[in-house]
């Protein structure tokens, strides 16, 4: 009865079980979930998992090929690649989570307001969103990051702004379709206030596709962060980020390909996992596939 709006999963228990069943019956989805969980564990426990200090230079051991002491070798400054990849997990996940949170919260609020109030409010907000959408995400993030200056925090803000249009558009569309339902009219007819209708009736019914988008966007955001740090915008030099590692390593691509390939593979694995889980969620939440899956 006293259900709070958006925090609790709005899905009904039996429906929730069905979704879980569909999700876990797929190999790649389970694989993706396992990888994502492992990634979070790695990020949290990085100092204990990493065999070496990722920042420690060892000029006697530069560009070591993979061996027993250094499983993935060392880079030009003698830092252990594996340890740097493990610490890079922190950067990637943090940027991913924070940027997606910024994009989702701001974008969804804008979409909710635009869709709910319609008319000129809709026109103003959505034209602004269209303007943002006109630029490629990376380019937009690049410009914002340059304007704000480098650093992890600004990259997160830049990506958050760059990815916001997708959420705003989807949310707006969802709100418009929920508004067509009679229960929306019922709320208005009984004189319920705007906030009550929004958070009690509209938002909970908008959620399923947004959950999918959030999952899929995690992969995209991490990829975008890697792209930005490859381009040299993002984390400051000693810090470990996968994109920056790919960039550092590619000067030695012919002799020491592992330096670029290892972080590249990590990026690929993460993006693939998030996409697979997102795909699985999309199918599981699609009411048209209910019964088929």
């Amino acid at each position: 009865m006293q259900r709070t709006d958006m925090t609790e999963t709005p899905l009904h228990a039996s429906e929730f079980r069905r979704i879980m069943k569909v999700l876990f019956s797929r190999g790649v989805v389970v694989f993706g979930i396992v990888v994502i969980l492992a990634l979070f564990v790695t990020a949290i426990f990085a100092p204990w998992i990493a065999p070496y200090d990722p920042y420690k230079l060892d000029l006697n051991q530069t560009l070591v090929q993979p061996c027993k002491e250094h499983l993935l070798g060392t880079d030009a400054l003698g830092r252990d690649t594996l340890s740097r990849i493990i610490f890079g997990t922190r950067t990637s996940l943090m940027v991913g989570v924070v940027a997606v949170c910024i994009a989702a919260s701001v974008g969804m609020t804008m979409g909710l307001i635009a869709g709910y109030f319609g008319r000129w409010v809709h026109a103003i907000i959505m034209r602004f969103i269209d303007a943002l959408m006109a630029f490629p995400v990376i380019l937009l993030a690049l410009v914002i990051a340059v304007l704000l200056g480098g650093g992890l925090r600004n990259v997160m803000i830049a990506l958050g702004i760059g990815l916001l249009p997708a959420y705003a558009r989807l949310m707006c569309g969802q709100v418009l379709s929920v508004k067509e339902n009679d229960y929306f009219l019922a709320g208005r007819a009984m004189g319920a206030g705007n906030l009550r209708i929004m958070f009690r009736h509209v938002v909970p019914n908008c959620f399923p596709p947004l959950i999918v988008l959030i999952t899929m966007m995690m992969g995209l955001t991490i990829l975008a962060e890697a792209g930005l740090s490859f381009l040299g915008i993002g984390i400051e030099p000693p810090g470990a980020a996968w994109g920056a590692m790919v960039n550092d390593g590619y000067q030695y691509l012919l002799t020491h390909p592992i330096l670029s390939f290892a972080p590249g593979f990590a990026i690929m694995l993460v993006v693939f996992s998030f996409n697979m889980v997102g795909d699985g969620l999309r199918d599981a939440l699609d009411p048209r596939l209910r019964g088929v899956l």
Binding site: M1, R3, D182, Y183, A186, P204
Partner: peptide
């Protein structure tokens, strides 16, 4: 008050029957 034609679309699928009836 208004009673609707469609008994499926007029009740919020995410709310319990009790909170639908008690909302007014």
């Amino acid at each position: 008050s208004l009673i609707f034609q469609d008994p499926y679309g007029s009740l919020d699928p995410r709310q319990s029957a009790g909170s639908i009836v008690g909302e007014p």
